[in-house]
Each structure stands twice: as C-alpha cells, then as structure tokens.
C-alpha cells in the first residue's frame, strides 16, 4: 500500500472510533493546533512530556501568549491539573486506526491517561498497514525491558450501561491525531 493510501485508511478507521484526524505539514502546525484546541475547549493547561527542547520553548511561548499554563515534569505533581496532552506516536496501524506509543516513560503515561484531551502527532511514514507489520519492532522493544507499550484506538469508551456507547470513562475524552506529511505536495 502506498503512503497516501495508508494515511487515508488510518484517517478513515480512526474516525470510525471518534478520533479527530487532521493532516499537518510542520511542527509549528502541531504546536498551534494544540494551543488553539485547548483554548476552544476552555482548557487551562497543557503538557508535552516528550517534546524536544527547541519545540518545547516555542510551545511555552505560545502558551504564555494564550494565557495557558505549561506544566513541567514530573507530571506526578500535576495528576489532577492536565487538560491537554501533546505527545508523538511511535507508529500507527492503519487497519484499526490505532496509535502505538512506547510508554516506558511515566510522564508519557500520565499525560496520555490523565489528560482530558490527548493530541498525538505521527509522521505519515510511520503508518503501517497492520499489527503484523509491526511485530518485529514490537518484539525488539519488548526484548529490552522494562517496557510499557500502548495501543490507543480512539478515546476511552464504555458500553457497560445498557450497551449504550459512552465516550470518556477513565481516559481522555477526546483523541486528536495529527498526521504529518513529510513532503506535502
């Protein structure tokens, strides 16, 4: 499957599970998106545990301009304060619209579990057709423990009451996926 087909399928399958999927061209797009989204949702705070220092500085600048609090690690100090979490995803699985995050870092886990909104960006080249295509990489990671590997498919959900689907039980209530096209045409 070609890249654009995988991107299309990823978007289609992720939207089936209520994820919001957008294509972006640069890190700046990502940073602006996450700030705008937080403002739209009346959120007050933002975390970005795995961001490199250069982008983190840009994001912090955006945050202060927008009146948002940028929370610094360790995130255990902010367990109840996180509105938006910005993270990358290591891979994505188009077949099911799934994000795969190597979550050995506790800050990353806390960000993706205790935020109200999770925004993840993924380079288009890291979208794979199915889980089997990922298995060598998964095994490799599992063989250098300790590890905590997360497959995330849509927002947290339940159907435990009368089998009616409800979104946002214990995890994030919304999931946004930003697919980054390396060579936008």
């Amino acid at each position: 499957m070609k890249h654009h087909e995988l991107t299309y399928r990823m978007k289609e399958k992720a939207e089936l599970v209520q994820a919001v999927v957008t294509t972006v061209c640069s890190m700046e797009d990502v940073l602006r998106y996450v700030v705008d989204l937080t403002l739209r949702q009346n959120g007050k705070s933002l975390v970005a545990p795995c961001l490199d220092s250069q982008n983190r500085q840009v994001l912090e600048t955006f945050c202060s301009a927008a009146g948002l609090t940028f929370l610094h690690p360790p995130l255990r100090n902010h367990l109840t304060d996180i509105h938006t979490a910005l993270t990358h995803a290591d891979w994505a699985i188009a077949e099911t619209g799934t994000l795969v995050l190597n979550s050995a870092s506790e800050d990353l886990r806390i960000a993706t579990m205790l935020s109200e909104t999770h925004v993840a960006w993924i380079p288009a080249s890291r979208i794979l057709p199915d889980a089997v295509a990922l298995s060598d990489r998964l095994i490799e990671t599992m063989k250098s423990p300790p590890g905590y590997m997360s497959f995330i498919t849509g927002a947290s959900r339940t159907a435990d009451i009368e089998r009616v689907l409800a979104i946002g039980v214990h995890g994030p209530q919304t999931l946004h996926i930003l697919i980054m096209e390396e060579n936008p045409s």
Binding site: P74, R76, P146, S150, F151
Partner: peptide, 25 residues
Amino acid sequence: TGQALTSYVTFITGAVECGASDSGK
C-alpha cells in the same frame, strides 16, 4: 462485542518507572 479493536491494548514487560515508589521502579 464486534469492535475492530478495543480502545487500549497494553503490553507490560517488567518493572517500569514509577515516581510513587521509593526505588523509582
């Protein structure tokens, strides 16, 4: 349940980082 995949699939290998524990593990 007829779901293609659940929201979460988690693979845990060994004692990961944990700030709440004295050892950090």
